[in-house]
Design a protein around this nucleic acid. Structure first.
Lengths: 118, 118
DNA sequence: TCAATACTTCAACAATAATGGAAATATGGA
DNA sequence: TCCATATTTCCATTATTGTTGAAGTATTGA
């Protein structure tokens, strides 16, 4: 099951977002932790913590390769997240490009005058 | 300036995501806090805290309307976020629908053998 | 002007997440 | 087998977030 908030929270951290982007750019073969560690100037423990987090929620995957490890982006998960954001969050209201200029055509336009006391 | 991680973090919370979705569904005219409070079963202080957060990062907007307030989704911000996620995160690697079935055609395929010591 | 309402800000506390050093684990080469 | 290397897990500490009652602010209607 996809827990959107969990994925969003995982990406909602400067460092993890940077890690994820590096992995996405790296393609399906991914990258080695020491490369990431160097690229981002992070101590290995901190990096490991964030890699574990991204891995746990399914945004990246870990491959053991003899003595080394490799992490790669899990594109399908990102797909699902984007699909969720467009369909469940914006579907029916179109917050995709153009939404701002094409305001609610199919909306009820309830124009309710005021709240009715809780 | 768009701080993607900030927006993602804002949406990366069950309650805030729920609030945001309600506002997106509500259309440009938005909703009154008491409606949201009731719909989500949240005490007004908690709701207010999360509304303030979403408002601060620019995902929703607040309109004062005489005695009442109204919050509405800021579609353009969501647009920008989705654009960022597709372009800067997945652009060039296509993690949009179909990515999983259409693996890296244009990728370097470096197949580097191992990391060179940090 | 006073009271009621709608909501916020304040403040205190609880819970959760992030950081990074030290120790543990695993692998491969000498 | 022993050592070096890569990376993790453990653990303590710090920092950040979330929750909610109480008090404050603004607006309208009586």
């Amino acid at each position: 099951m996809l827990l959107a908030a969990e994925l969003l929270a995982a990406l909602g951290h400067e460092t993890r977002l940077a890690i994820f982007r590096l992995l996405v750019e790296a393609g399906p073969q991914g990258r080695y932790p020491n490369e990431l560690s160097e690229a981002l100037g992070l101590p290995p423990t901190t990096l490991s913590f964030h890699l574990a987090h991204l891995n746990r929620v399914g945004l990246i995957r870990r491959h053991k390769e003899g003595r080394y490890l490799r992490y790669a982006a899990a594109y399908e998960t990102m797909d699902e997240l984007l699909a969720f954001l467009t369909q469940n969050c914006c579907g029916g209201v179109a917050c995709l490009s153009g939404a701002a200029t094409r305001p609610n055509e199919e909306l009820p336009q309830t124009t309710s005058p005021a709240p009715q006391g809780a």
